[in-house]
């Protein structure tokens, strides 16, 4: 007995990586130019911004313009004056779990400018954004409701932005549970997963407490990325195509002027995989 194989469901997964996540726009463009349709998008942390613009159908230029305006150094320039006092004298100043060194007013304002009142239902293709439950450490997948709170939760970088409450759960950055959440695409039925991931950069010199904290964060995040990817890669039948752009220039967390370069590198990395993805989809079967 023969039957036609079901069409492969293609997912695009964009991992955490700050400004580097803009490389996903180059990947998206490469897929589009090759006529490869994406059936769902998953985003984590900085990747959630690019997942959202992709799923909403922004053009490359619209996406570039929106993110250039959104993610600049100013969004973390406004210090939360009370935070340092809360750190030094927690009982006196009432330290709480909703704690971060920076005010989040500006990032929320900019998210509203970029996404307005759009909800997940406005996406042209299913969109899933990940965050992490602050209390339990569980990965939380946000797939409905307004986009702005979901993105704000997904980018709640520890120590910088306070955890953010969505539907009664206090959420922190998605990278803390999985920097490259391909498991979400697997659970949603994707058979071909194009995953763009980024390793966190290590510090060249550690002379401040902030750099010390960033270094420890990079060590933990990179090890988490590898262990989670290794497990999903080995345990599931889905075909995972890992796209890892190479950046010869160092790309900092807020180096938004490098976005055109980052997009180009994303496209370059993606083009290496396009022939195989086309053959795989053309073969009408999944791995």
């Amino acid at each position: 007995m023969t039957g036609s194989a079901p069409r492969s469901r293609v997912a695009l997964v964009i991992g955490s990586g700050g400004v580097k996540c803009a490389a996903a726009l180059g990947l998206q463009q490469a897929l589009h130019d090759a006529g490869i349709e994406v059936d769902m998008v998953v985003g984590c942390s900085g990747g959630s911004l690019y997942a959202a613009v992709t799923a909403l159908g922004f053009t490359l230029e619209e996406a570039k313009a929106a993110t250039l305006k959104l993610w600049t150094r100013e969004v973390t320039a406004q210090r939360n004056r009370r935070a340092l006092l809360q750190l030094l004298f927690p009982r006196v100043f009432g330290f709480s779990e909703a704690w971060g060194f920076r005010e989040d007013g500006l990032i929320l304002e900019r998210l509203h400018t970029a996404f307005g009142d759009r909800t997940f239902a406005d996406a042209r293709i299913p969109l899933h954004l990940t965050a992490t439950d602050f209390r339990t450490g569980e990965q939380v997948v946000l797939s409905q409701g307004p986009l702005v709170p979901a993105i704000r939760a997904s980018i709640a970088v520890p120590f910088i932005f306070a955890p953010y409450r969505v539907d009664g759960r206090l959420l922190v950055d998605g990278f803390l549970s999985d920097p490259l959440p391909i498991n979400v695409a697997m659970r949603e039925g994707a058979s071909v997963i194009v995953a763009m991931g980024f390793e966190s950069p290590y510090q060249t010199a550690v002379r401040t407490p902030a750099r010390f904290a960033f270094q420890l964060s990079s060590i933990m995040t990179n090890n988490l990325l590898k262990s989670r990817f290794a497990f999903h890669n080995a345990a599931h039948h889905a075909e995972v195509i890992l796209v890892v752009p190479e950046f010869e220039q160092r790309v900092g967390l807020f180096d938004t002027w490098k976005i055109p370069y980052v997009i180009d590198e994303g496209r370059r990395a993606a083009e290496r995989h396009i022939p195989y993805i086309r053959r795989l989809l053309g073969a009408g079967r999944t791995a």
Partner: peptide, 12 residues
Amino acid sequence: REVYRVLDLAGF
């Protein structure tokens, strides 16, 4: 190098 990178990330 590019293949090693995937092997490394996948834990191999």
